[in-house]
């Protein structure tokens, strides 16, 4: 028996919004420690890694580990039926081929449930090597989304260059070029507004705008985003989900020919 209850179903909806444009389907691996999802997009350029810890749920029970393969467009349809203040309870029997989502309104005057068919997905798990990153940039997630959106108008790629002085986002296209430089802030009072750079070595890598834009769909989950970079290694874009876990995206850099 698997049962997970989240008072704030809107958080799960936000997670879904953050992954459904990258992945058509994905397996949710449920165990005693929580729910995990790891999946690459169809072109094997990016990877989504979601980790929700069991004690972040308001109720969590998982007697036997189970893998639930789901079509994310179908799952989105289910969550479209939930109210923003609803509580969600996710339930599945051991070895079941369906999962049930129950939504309860705040005052419990409305209770709805949706049963969705599970899929058998051929999932391959990837081993992600531990990396000593050259640069780790922590910045407001809304600022990152804004920069990626702005620069995407001009080119297909964004070069992210990080030095001790700050981080520079650059693009070039047919109509010209665009650059955004962010300096490290000293505003320690407001951590969520700070730009904090932890640099071992300067690094400059090129990434596809299309994917960076899809990652910024996670912006509503967290005030801050962390970008971890190292030469010839995929970029890691991490959003912490308060009290529940984290959502990480990995993106292979573009390689100069």
């Amino acid at each position: 028996m698997f049962e997970a209850r989240l008072v704030n179903s809107a958080t799960f909806k936000k997670i879904l919004d953050a992954i459904k444009d990258l992945l058509d389907q994905a397996s949710f691996d449920c165990s005693e420690s929580g729910i995990q999802l790891q999946a690459m997009d169809n072109s094997h350029v990016s990877l989504v890694s979601l980790n929700l810890k069991s004690d972040g749920f308001d109720k969590y029970r998982c007697d036997r580990s189970l893998t639930m393969g789901m079509n994310l467009a179908s799952l989105s349809k289910v969550f479209r039926c939930s109210g923003s203040d609803d509580t969600v309870t996710i339930k599945a029997q051991d070895d079941a081929d369906t999962v049930t989502f129950m939504f309860e309104s705040k005052k419990q005057e409305k209770i709805s449930d949706y049963e969705m068919k599970l899929m058998n997905l051929d999932q391959e798990h990837l081993g992600i090597p531990e990396t000593e990153f050259s640069c780790i940039i922590k910045m407001p997630s809304a600022e990152f989304a804004r920069i990626v959106r702005d620069l995407s108008q001009f080119g297909e790629s964004i070069v992210i260059s990080c030095t001790k002085e700050g981080v520079k986002f650059s693009t070039q296209g047919d109509i010209g070029t665009g650059n955004v430089k962010l300096a490290q802030t000293n505003n320690f009072d407001k951590e969520e507004e700070s730009v904090i750079i932890d640099m071992q070595e300067p690094v400059s890598l090129t990434f596809a705008c299309q994917y960076l834009n899809l990652f910024t769909k996670a912006t509503p989950l967290s005030n801050q985003v962390t970008l971890s970079m190292c030469d010839n290694v995929p970029l890691v874009v991490e959003y912490q989900i308060p009290d529940l876990g984290h959502l990480c995206y990995y993106l292979a850099p573009k390689i100069e020919e």
Partner: peptide, 14 residues
């Protein structure tokens, strides 16, 4: 010009 890398070359399939 640049080409898009794939993750398969960085991560091992378990």
């Amino acid at each position: 010009s640049s080409t898009q890398g794939r993750l398969d070359s960085f991560f091992k399939v378990l």
